[in-house]
Nucleic acid binder design. Structure first.
Lengths: 348, 348
DNA sequence: TTGTAAGCGTTATCAC
DNA sequence: GTGATAACGCTTACAA
């Protein structure tokens, strides 16, 4: 046959080593190689060894894109966080990522900066990759996001924000409880004029919840709650300074201040030092977050530590359970309420 | 025909809305829909509008996995960092991620914890997704990694560690220069007995480089360098405390201490306060890193700020240039040496 | 500007 | 335990 068809020209993926190359090298079909990776038990010992050798020799790397297309399930999990570099979510991302990769899953990450629009656009892009699951931070989504999520039909996990009445798996803690823990601690230590400082940013609902836990507890203890919100649009650190200065300048100053977060508290601490006050003698200070700097301040900062790392790890575990990658057959628990821990240091 | 063939059962991607569905809804071929997304200019205005409407109505989300397989280029970029939650790399990741997503690329992220083995395993998993480019942190790879990278044939960028003699695109700064900047600053401020404190971890080569820059500068200024390394395996914060205590307890104590990083410096600052020393009167303190807590210390910490965010943003830009996604036709600059900035605060 | 056909590299299915 | 074959949903190449 002189006019035999010329082989189709290579247009793309040229040069990549494929499963087929491995299969031919060993003298089996591609299916055997595929099984070697996915169900090794079903491949004979002899073949397993020869395939392993061929994979090593050829430097074969399975094409997960092709695999994902064929099986409609890629080992990718997507996560949207408000930000990566802040003190809040970093540990969660770390725990999530590490736990996933231990089980052969990859993390697709994007940040929303607390914007529903950015969250929606990130999720839209993610869904195109058919992630095996999706983890979001907060329950506050745009309409479009909700619609996509409903259609997507993959495990969805909402973290940080604990909303038991919502359908997705919830992993978080109670901000209200944080307020209770903090108020009780200060009371236990003997303080009686306990103020709470809220950030000036009015949109921080979780800080609001903490203040409510604080207020209820104080009332239950027969004390008068006093919530102070610095005026103006200050950065938290500056707001904390102002709050302490104003509160301590009053005729009846507090003997303890519970700040809505550690940034505020650090500002308060600094202002107190500059004013020549002795902490906690003249006024105890308590924060929330256990940001990395808390133990480096002088005096170092008592605070309440949210289970950030634990949220990440647990989110990954719930994802892996949903996918049957661990604890096969076990339905992942839907409601996961974690505990915050009081870290008592010198400032209280 | 009573025995008409039953339609092939859906095994996978069942239910997903495809390009084909959109095409039929509009009455065009799939190629027109494909072009609508990839080369909209080549689609008539009329079709564009009708496709847009159909996409919205059906809630179509392009399957990037299929697209990636067909075109052998997915809009995914992979990055390996030592860790996500530490103070060092967080800004780089943030800048990288944000810049990428602004251009429609997604970030695949993993951490190596400074382990070459973990880096290799992460990269191996990444390559299966045919990332459009790969960004790593440091140049210190395992043999297997080097081999994979050589075969991969995608843009590779090495960040943080600036190694001009290596082939991949380099984005970083000079640790040596950091030492120079710090030494000069302290000299300019009038200090003459300037010590340098290294972390006890001997494996930190970049800290070593900073100390060399410091030592050379001091010699050039006619001063005697004095490098102190706390004994034992202490956490940086503790090591910093010990270093300051020991150095200041000497008969000829330094009048300024340049710590290899802010964690050490924070420990030094704290130890100084506890010892009743006034900073910077009795001894100036300078750090490196500008970790978030630096401005919250009392006195707040003078330090040298590495261009972390800038590294991330620039890495993304170089990736996008390599892919022709921005500045088409421009070859990305291979060597990118960025500047560190001295942040002068109260401690010096 | 649009359409047809082939193929990307893998896995599901079913037959042996 | 193994293999042949048909998808998976999209894009390249080429034709109209």
């Amino acid at each position: 046959m002189s006019d035999m068809k010329s082989p189709p020209r290579k247009r793309r993926g040229a040069g990549r080593i494929t499963q087929d190359a491995v299969a031919r090298h060993v003298g089996v079909s591609t299916m055997t190689v595929s099984r070697y990776f996915n169900q090794p038990d079903q491949v004979s010992e002899d073949h397993r060894q020869r395939i392993a050798a061929a994979v090593a020799e050829l430097g074969y790397v399975p094409n997960l894109v092709a695999g994902g297309l064929a099986s409609a399930k890629g080992r990718i999990v997507a996560m949207v966080v408000p930000n990566i570099s802040g003190p809040i979510f970093a540990d969660t991302i770390q725990g999530f990522s590490d736990t996933l990769s231990q089980h052969g899953y990859q993390l697709l990450l994007a940040s929303s900066y607390f914007s529903k629009e950015q969250e929606e656009s990130a999720i839209r892009a993610f869904l195109g990759w058919s992630p095996a699951a999706l983890v979001v931070t907060s329950h506050f989504h745009s309409e479009g996001t909700e619609k996509m999520l409903a259609n997507a039909d993959i495990p969805l996990i909402e973290t940080w924000d604990y909303q038991p009445e919502r359908a997705p798996i919830q992993i978080g803690f109670s901000h209200h409880q944080v307020g209770v823990i903090g108020a009780r601690h200060l009371h236990d230590k003997g303080y009686r004029r306990i103020a709470f400082v809220l950030n000036s940013a009015s949109g921080d609902f979780s800080a609001q919840e903490r203040s409510e836990g604080y207020a209820e507890t104080l009332v239950a203890l027969g004390l008068a709650p006093q919530i102070y919100t610095p005026a103006g649009e200050l950065a938290p650190f500056e707001a904390g300074k102002r709050a302490l200065t104003e509160l301590m300048g009053r005729s009846d100053p507090p003997d303890a201040i519970f700040f809505a977060n550690d940034n505020l508290a650090a500002g308060g601490l600094l202002a107190a030092q500059r004013a020549g006050l002795s902490i906690p003698k003249n006024c105890a200070i308590l924060g929330f977050g256990d940001y990395p700097f808390a133990e480096m301040l002088m005096p170092n900062l008592s605070t309440i530590k949210p289970p950030a790392l634990q949220i990440g790890v647990l989110a990954a575990q719930r994802v892996l359970q949903s996918l049957g990658a661990i604890d096969e057959g076990v339905e992942p628990q839907r409601l996961n309420l974690l505990e915050c821990r009081l870290i008592e240091r010198e400032s209280s």
